[in-house]
């Protein structure tokens, strides 16, 4: 399995974050895992990276149902970031939602490559890694 430099996990549920972080670590997919508890904080982080002229995470795992700014709100803002920064960042939705409408809507964003149902498992991480390589 290839090794990523950086993964960003965006979810408001702390327990969910705890579990997912553990799973990702044990899968050893990335050198570094950042966790943000809202879309707003994730955007803040990305903007800091842009300002520091650093490259962004290769993958963002994004929850949909979050207060203040939900996953789609984050994606709208994400699309406004400089193209030079966002190109190459793959987004995978990570949600408890089973709504077909939300799946469809997610794939309308060009950076979204996967729609994963919680809980995250080693198998799901492997499939995601495959998609990222493709």
């Amino acid at each position: 399995m290839m090794k990523l430099k950086r993964i960003l996990l965006v979810d408001d549920d702390e327990i969910s974050n705890f579990i997912n972080e553990r799973k990702l670590k044990s899968a050893g997919i990335a050198d570094r895992i950042d966790v943000c508890i809202s879309g707003m904080r994730a955007l803040q982080l990305l903007n800091e990276l842009i300002a520091a002229n650093e490259s962004g995470p290769e993958v963002i795992l994004l929850d949909i149902n979050m207060p203040i700014m939900d996953g789609f709100g984050f994606l709208d803002e994400f699309d406004r970031l400089p193209g030079s920064f966002t190109t190459g960042i793959k987004v995978a939705m990570l949600t408890s939602s089973l709504e077909k409408e939300e799946i469809r809507r997610s794939y309308e964003y060009k950076n979204v490559v996967d729609f994963i149902n919680k809980p995250l498992s080693t198998e799901k991480i492997v499939i995601l890694a495959d998609k990222i390589i493709k």
Partner: peptide, 24 residues
């Protein structure tokens, strides 16, 4: 229906994930 599915499912899925962690 939508919200309860999320609000009830989310902690249940967390439980699922935790049980998974416990077993390992």
């Amino acid at each position: 229906v939508y919200s309860t599915s999320h609000d009830l499912r989310a902690p249940l899925l967390s439980l699922h994930g935790l049980v998974d962690l416990c077993s390992s």
